[in-house]
Design a protein around this nucleic acid. Structure first.
Lengths: 115, 115
DNA sequence: AATACATTTCGACGGTTGACGAAACGATGG
DNA sequence: CCATCGTTTCGTCAACCGTCGAAATGTATT
């Protein structure tokens, strides 16, 4: 049994990770920006992001002391691409998701990041 | 956070449940037919089917002493519909899935079902 | 090189999950 | 109405998961 697809579904089977994916639809984010919005510990957020990354749903790149995570919208993997698109079309009315998006547009990493 | 979508991903985040979904693409099946192919206990198969059912991915109907489970391809839920379609287009080359499909076409409930 | 700070890794903890067998439930047919 | 057989529920167990804080790692600035 192909474990890759199971891994992707597994990655999406947590409310906080779904929230992260929806936040990343707005723009790329670093760990502490996500931490600020989800109100979780740094280590927990880092773990969630690594799960999404291992599944191939998000990509990362370093920018100075920050690590930026972004949605893998242009994945060469057809399955991932379809799923990302499906998620983009979903949960648009969700209260929590709307609130998070609002916070994403306001959060400033230079102000909130000091572990 | 909308729990429904998380529940669907959760339901799909297990290899045996993915195998069940792919088997149900062929035709509807009863618990003991699935048990025969997956080589799991009746109670475990019943649990897997109830998880998929609770998530809205499959539907059930009684036929005598059997309960038939079938894929919810025509779900009124847009999200479920897209996911079922995506799964149909996926894993077509998977060895385990191919083997299961072969077994589905051969299995006869009147021969194998006697708990 | 020393400090500061973002991130990751590690170890520990409760809670959840997938598996089983046994028992309960439900429908069919003598 | 009793026996049979498919299914579901229950209780249990080991493995896994989400969370945290502390420690380790890595990068930039002084």
């Amino acid at each position: 049994m192909n474990r890759e697809i199971v891994k992707v579904f597994r990655a999406l089977s947590d409310p906080n990770r779904i929230r992260i994916v929806k936040m990343l639809e707005e723009r790329e984010l670093c760990v502490c920006e996500v931490r600020e919005i989800l109100k979780l510990s740094n280590s927990t957020v880092s773990k969630h992001l690594s799960v999404l990354h291992d599944a191939g749903l998000i990509a990362q790149s370093k920018e100075g002391k920050w690590v930026n995570y972004r949605l893998n919208s242009k994945s060469d993997n057809q399955f991932i691409g379809s799923l990302v698109k499906l998620l983009k079309a979903s949960l648009q009315e969700d209260e929590s998701v709307r609130r998070d998006s609002e916070l994403v547009s306001r959060v400033d990493r230079n102000k909130i990041c000091q572990v």
